[in-house]
Design a binder for these strands. Structure first.
Lengths: 334, 334
DNA sequence: CTCCTTCGTGTAATCGATTACTCGAGATCC
DNA sequence: GGATCTCGAGTAATCGATTACACGAAGGAG
């Protein structure tokens, strides 16, 4: 592989001049610039970003840690983050935590070692020492989708309360009283917030909350299935199940089908998160859509503020309730 | 941030000793080792991977370029690659090409600059100069899922011929004669291979191939929808549509629903790729499943061979035909 | 004609680690 | 007791870039 000094030798100039050409420094004569460019293409020179980063103390890289790469919500998020970052000249490196604190920490450490310029984290589970360290050391850091308590870290998140209220109103209108809920883990702010919003909405609409109707999952399909098993085995099972994310909804659906129940007639289903295939289930699944595109763009904007020394603004966006048919017609579900 | 020399000063030793501790070199006395470890934790020292990489000429990083991060096939693949790589002590950085040659090249360049130790590419479209350069320069490189002609690059891929033959046999058994096909782009080996396998299977089972039944998409949902529009507008539309990947199947399904056609009765649908939600469509979608887990593991194995100077082995795995109900019952579709 | 800018270029220090080489102290062997 | 080995540790070169600083030439002002 060619190095900068090979290019310099070939072009008959010093390495400083070559470096100036690479970095678009105007203090280079037209003639020399041409010779350098020529030498670079001849040698197929590729600048070594590792060496540059060491010297400039910047990698032009953002470390993004998502909860689960198999969750379409997070991949959509990753895509929009990547897009926005690219426009600002940054590369995104993605770490998949698999919803486990331990794997999240692995990436926090790895990214710190690799000297990413900024961290964007969808925190999994509790506050871990490694995340606290980032915050304490004042590294550019923002939380995305989820927050952690007790840390002064700017956060870009979604408030689903309005949409959840819309859902509960919808269920009340259809005459359903017995609503089962599969929450995300209590250790996650997104899980807690949704649960709280759900309970508040239930109260507001004068609906009884039975403790046995509130299950706790972990945002993965299998926990949605297991929770559904318990809900449907109750002496008086709920009429509608509201799953706290799209994967748990998938798991719930697996179990409903497995029992040969008719969706929307024997039992209803609604999901936080909207995914493209929901419209193809029969009946189509009532859902709450999150503005993933905007979420990612805002998150990058916050990081750029941090990196450029501006004051970052935590942002809260709103989710949207999308009624479809999976909760049945009025008075339909016994 | 603490540097190695700060640790050395605090522990009262030289930087060489600290470095030896970091790298588990046994030539350090127990006492000094303890002092260094103590100093490292006190200073919250994090080794600088950029500096290390510059010196050692290794980043312990694999660059993976996937076709589309919104395609569940690729995310499953990415996850398995990441898992296998991690076990071998490598970090994976993912580049999303969005199925565009230009974005793929962006990542090839970026990864080359960042000095990744090896490249794993699901090539999008044609042979581009940047990929040729990688191959010519002898960089550790393997293709995954797709190949490019004319380059001696080890490849890990799936042969779907057997599964596709199973599908066509299935369709023949059901009495269907008019089969529409939405292929991937001809510029992609995976697209070409599937088309070829499909045509061969049709011939083998004595079924007529009408040119107007063969549509070409681009592996994205919208092209599946557009192709379906054309197929269903034909004077004599096909009885069954076979989509070349899961996203085009999704698009096809969108169009079928949009026309209020009954799946499996008015028109059948089958998909290359199997995804979790297929079983929840009514009727469940007949599909061809690829062994993504194994695919990713093998790909990493090939890269490790390359990196350790062993002779890599190109591998071809087989896909599996999974009959469900979306192509109707015998003689059902007119 | 001198003095002062400005411009283009080169020399060399620097970023933070790794590691070849060196060296002294103590152990081992005959 | 002297020669040889082993062990633990330190000094300094090195990786490939960027950039402060220095310097000579050319141009402009007076």
């Amino acid at each position: 592989m060619a190095r900068i000094k090979d290019v310099a030798a070939r072009a008959g100039v010093s390495v400083a001049t070559v470096s100036r050409v690479i970095n678009d420094n105007p203090r280079v004569s037209g003639e020399n610039r041409a010779r350098v460019v020529e030498a670079m293409t001849q040698l197929r020179y590729v600048p070594n970003a590792v060496a540059r980063s060491l010297r400039t103390d910047a990698t032009k890289t953002i470390g993004l840690i998502i909860g689960d790469i198999l969750n379409p919500f997070f991949t959509a998020l990753a895509r929009s983050v990547e897009q926005a970052a690219r426009e600002a000249g940054y590369t995104v490196v993605i770490g998949n935590a698999n919803e486990r604190a331990e794997e999240q920490d692995h990436y926090v450490r790895t990214f710190a070692e690799q000297q990413v310029d900024a961290f964007l984290i969808c925190p999994t589970a509790e506050v871990t020492p490694s995340i606290t360290e980032l915050a304490v050391d004042g590294r550019p850091l923002a939380f995305l989708d989820r927050t952690l308590p007790g840390l002064a870290v700017p956060t870009v998140r979604v408030d689903g309360a309005r949409a959840i209220d819309g859902l509960v109103a919808h269920l009340a209108r259809l005459g359903h009283r017995r609503i089962g809920y599969i929450s995300g883990p209590d250790s996650l702010s997104s899980g807690r917030d949704r649960t709280e919003a759900f309970l508040a909405a239930m109260r507001r609409h004068g609906m009884e909350i039975r403790p046995e109707y509130v299950e706790t999952g972990d945002f993965q399909a299998e926990s949605g299935r297991a929770s559904t098993v318990r809900l449907l085995s109750l002496p008086e099972p709920p009429q509608v199940i509201f799953a706290g994310d799209n994967l748990m909804a998938l798991g719930a659906l697996d179990e409903i089908r497995g029992r040969d129940l008719r969706l929307g007639r024997d039992v209803g289903l609604a999901s936080y998160d909207d995914v493209p295939w929901f419209v193809h289930v029969d009946p189509p699944i009532t859902a709450i859509a999150q503005p993933t595109e905007e979420l990612g763009h805002r998150a990058v904007a916050v990081l750029l503020d941090l990196l450029d020394g501006r004051e970052p603004e935590s942002t809260t966006l709103h989710a949207q309730f999308i009624p479809r048919k999976s909760c049945g017609e009025e008075g339909e579900i016994a």
